[in-house]
């Protein structure tokens, strides 16, 4: 039992570290990305990784109060990505 709980705790720590590394990788792509599409894609990936970090924090603390925050971040990420893409495609967001 203790071994299994230890396993879960270490998996949680590892997941925190890996998602943080993935977030930094996406940030590097946001910084160097040669095209506009790459930068929008990196921002979208950073949104998704932020949702992952918040979900992991919810598991770590054993609470459910972060659920609404992650849902709102998911919606904001989608809306902002679509807005960026529409602005590049049409030169305007709402025509």
């Amino acid at each position: 039992m203790t071994l299994a709980t230890d396993l879960m705790t270490w998996a949680l720590y590892g997941a925190f570290a890996v998602v943080a590394v993935a977030q930094i990788m996406a940030m590097i792509r946001l910084w160097v990305g040669p095209n506009t599409g790459d930068r929008i894609l990196a921002l979208d990936t950073m949104f998704i990784n932020a949702i992952g970090l918040i979900v992991l924090l919810g598991i770590y603390q054993g609470t459910r109060i972060y659920f609404e925050a992650s849902l709102i971040i998911a919606m904001l990420g989608f809306i902002s990505t679509v807005a960026y893409a529409r602005f590049v495609l049409r030169g305007d967001i709402i025509e």
Binding site: M1, G14, A22, M25, A42, N49
Partner: peptide, 28 residues
């Protein structure tokens, strides 16, 4: 049952971390 659930949580976390890392590496 609790032991099985805890192992399942650990396995899901490892799978999710793996996919997230693959996404980051692929993006770079």
């Amino acid at each position: 049952l609790e032991t099985i659930a805890v192992v399942a949580i650990a396995a899901s976390l490892v799978v999710g971390a793996l996919f997230t890392l693959v996404a980051g590496i692929g993006l770079l």
